[in-house]
Write a protein that binds this DNA or RNA. Structure first.
Length: 150
DNA sequence: GCCAACGTTGGC
DNA sequence: GCCAACGTTGGC
């Protein structure tokens, strides 16, 4: 059992969207490191912070769970899809994803600015300079500390 | 809208 | 294998 953080732009898909549909394939990831976490390390039942990026406010909006084993991201095969990748062969898919399911929405967004205020969190990958990764593991101690902020 | 930081691509 | 050019992410 591991903890994770996954980013999404709420204008595209946010915590309220997940609360409505309950379960969603986390498609469109086109970064190898992020893919590898989904394909090779995530386990059903792992818990995930849902992070709103490019948003107002920016921050952690709630919790979801990993709900499936990894499987190919079919949006890569669709020439009409935004995340089409002609190099992903259906017989040897390049991109994989997992389904996530809604667990709960926080009473409030725990903002990026607030996370940066706490020395306990300064080692978080999310807070490191230049971080652009959209899926990353979260240390259990950081997970617990953040839950205490809500 | 800007731009720093980073990842990917492709020529050599 | 190197690295310049380019594209993207994402905070501000």
């Amino acid at each position: 059992m591991q903890y994770w953080l996954m980013k999404s732009e709420p204008d595209v898909f946010g915590i309220d969207d997940l609360a409505r549909v309950r379960r969603e394939p986390w498609d469109g990831i086109r970064n190898y490191q992020a893919r590898n976490f989904m394909r090779d390390q995530m386990q059903i039942g792992d818990r995930v912070f849902f992070y709103h990026s490019n948003a107002e406010p920016i921050g952690i909006a709630g919790i979801m769970r990993i709900a499936s084993a990894p499987y190919p991201d079919r949006t890569a095969f669709d020439p009409e899809a935004k995340y089409y990748d002609p190099k992903s062969d259906p017989d040897n898919p390049r991109w994989h994803l997992v389904d996530v399911e809604f667990e709960r929405k926080f009473r409030r967004i725990i903002t990026l600015a607030e996370l940066r205020e706490h020395p306990e969190l300064e080692e978080m990958q999310l807070l490191r300079k230049g971080n652009r990764l959209s899926i990353m593991p979260v240390e259990p101690a950081h997970w617990d500390f953040i839950l205490g902020l809500e």
